[in-house]
Design a protein around this nucleic acid. Sequence first.
DNA 1: CCAATCGATCCCATATATTGGGATCTTGTT
DNA 2: AACAAGATCCCAATATATGGGATCGATTGG
Lengths: 273, 273
Amino acid sequence: MASKPSTGEPGAAPGSAASGSAAPGSAAPGSQTLLRGLAILEAVAGGARDLAALSASLGTTRSTTHRLAAALVEQRYLTFAPRDGYALGPKLLELGFRAQQAVPVTRVARPHLERLSAECGDTIHLGVLEGDWALYLDKLPGRRRIEISSRVGERQPVWSTGLGKALILDFDEARWRDFYRLGDARGGHSPDLGTWLDRMRSYAARGIAYDREENEPEVRCVAGPIRDASGAIVAAFSVTSTVQYMDEPRMEALAETVRAVAGGISRDLGWAG
Amino acid sequence: MASKPSTGEPGAAPGSAASGSAAPGSAAPGSQTLLRGLAILEAVAGGARDLAALSASLGTTRSTTHRLAAALVEQRYLTFAPRDGYALGPKLLELGFRAQQAVPVTRVARPHLERLSAECGDTIHLGVLEGDWALYLDKLPGRRRIEISSRVGERQPVWSTGLGKALILDFDEARWRDFYRLGDARGGHSPDLGTWLDRMRSYAARGIAYDREENEPEVRCVAGPIRDASGAIVAAFSVTSTVQYMDEPRMEALAETVRAVAGGISRDLGWAG
DNA sequence: CCAATCGATCCCATATATTGGGATCTTGTT
DNA sequence: AACAAGATCCCAATATATGGGATCGATTGG
């Protein structure tokens, strides 16, 4: 029955509506004890403090719950303080930190972006904020005959690209202005400050950034922010094409897709949203 | 079933060795499956990539190992990629981050330490006393090309690190001796007891602890204690670098900075000093 | 000050979830 | 094309986890 538990994540089709809660029917035979132990971890993460709360949360008796919790405490996955009850333990700090180091954004994002690329056929970029610039880390060419002139390792101004704008979506207006001013130094701005800020506000509200030929004529893109476990934006990706493939309706449709993919990558980075 | 009745550790794990995970005499009955699952997590953290390595590492058959690993993958504690094998999963990132947030000191200290990090560019650690050990709760890498080998969630001996010494600055000499003796059990002390106590006295008087290559050659640090509303030392942080960036004059200068930052954090915790 | 209460910890016979040997399948290699 | 390496699946035997209840320690209230 198991469909394809192969590649890390199910994900399947875009717009996975399904709830995130554990599906009761999900097959996981032969690991009840382990699964219950992990459930305790998540119950504690979710705020459970004492045995009663844990027992209720996973539907086991006090004895069982206690035994499992005790094992987790002994292994330092949980801590237990007589007054305050259970809390997440140092081992989780350690493993979480290791996981963070071992997992570059590029590798995590790759499969997601490849799926997206196969689906939409446009050029996709992945990038991070480096100083005052947007740095391109990865690029998936896409199937269109047109070529987007950009290279991995290249830097682009933040204020003018969709990807750049997605990277600074969470910043406050003062910092937005700073980034806009960086453009003044080198060549003209397309939109004036007021217009640009208005757009940024709307992008921030929607959680998606657009680029409607503001940077180069004929070139449009939709970009989404990628968040880590802390919720901070650590990277962004953009879907780019020429205006002939990117009319307004399609941009709207893409926005949903981009949001979904961005969420998927973020979750793989530990984002809980 | 002529399985090995020994629940202990068979051979040494491949790759990185010597995690202190296996509790010596402590038997945790009634949670074998859970314990084995956790062992898999740590084996992967220690570098195990494929089923064979995992099986060897915890002494179970392929079937069992696979079933547990599959459960962990399904719960997103691990990821599995056909080519690369197993790796730590996003759930660990999430729980690790939550664990960090759950410790109030970490949250309060963060902004202060980030400011300090931006200013000095060295590696900064935050830690607390857990039993007889200094437990690292947070780490800010710093901008130097050198890398300090330490991990969040890791434990270090108190007597040998600047951070550890800062944590016990308020203790009396009897307890200082106790901590010094803990070092005897495992390997040699750099300074003899008398010298060490002399230094501790001077550190206590100044309210700052140093580490002048006592723990590792080339590595120096300056550490300050963090106090809560009661005035008790509840945490400490250290600024670490190699000797080339840390000559005597700079250590003196840093002492003032560290004292100031430590005071700032302490005040945020309700300290009135 | 003692009784009542709440929660954690421990014990043990029973039922059940887990185990591991091997068959099978998938994927990459010679 | 056949091989090899590793992952995945299946099933009977039994070691393993389960939970009801007793115990213990601490906190609250009368």
